[in-house]
Amino acid sequence: MVAVMTWVLPSQVWGASFAATDLQVVGRAIAFMLPPPAPDAIIAIAYVAGNAASRQDADAIAALISGGLRAGRTTLRPRVIDINGLEAGGFQVVIAAAGANGPRLNAAARAARALCVTTDIEAVRSGFCAMAITSEPRVQITVNHAVAAAAGIEFVAAFRMMIQEL
């Protein structure tokens, strides 16, 4: 019930905009995935169909990483995708634009065995997304272990010891 209510809340409540520094942290964090992202893997930027603000936010995020998101030795190519289109899979990481966090994104990430990343810690606490990051004033990374495991996501042991897991 909570999940459904959450899903229909407006994007202002579930704001998920990423700053450039946040995306830098995302790239560096996903380099610790096991196995690491494949070369030329896709990083999906999910937005809510029919939500102009969400689409605008997704486009803004994509513009910040238009040249690709560096993740260790590989570079992920961004692709803006309507949340309904996530079912087709083909991405290794999905980040949630404004309003996109919710059970449908979670289900799509799990089906695609992809890592969901957000800047909204509450979405991770609620089990809608696997990883939350903040870059200011201090880098903080929180991972919902159960959500990540359900999507088949694992991380390097040293990385796990330095983040907060729920």
């Binding site: 694992e154 042991a157 040293a158």
Partner: peptide, 11 residues
């Protein structure tokens, strides 16, 4: 298993 030990630079 899947990864090496501590990577100071990356962390």
């Amino acid at each position: 298993t899947h990864a090496q030990s501590v990577d100071y630079q990356a962390l």
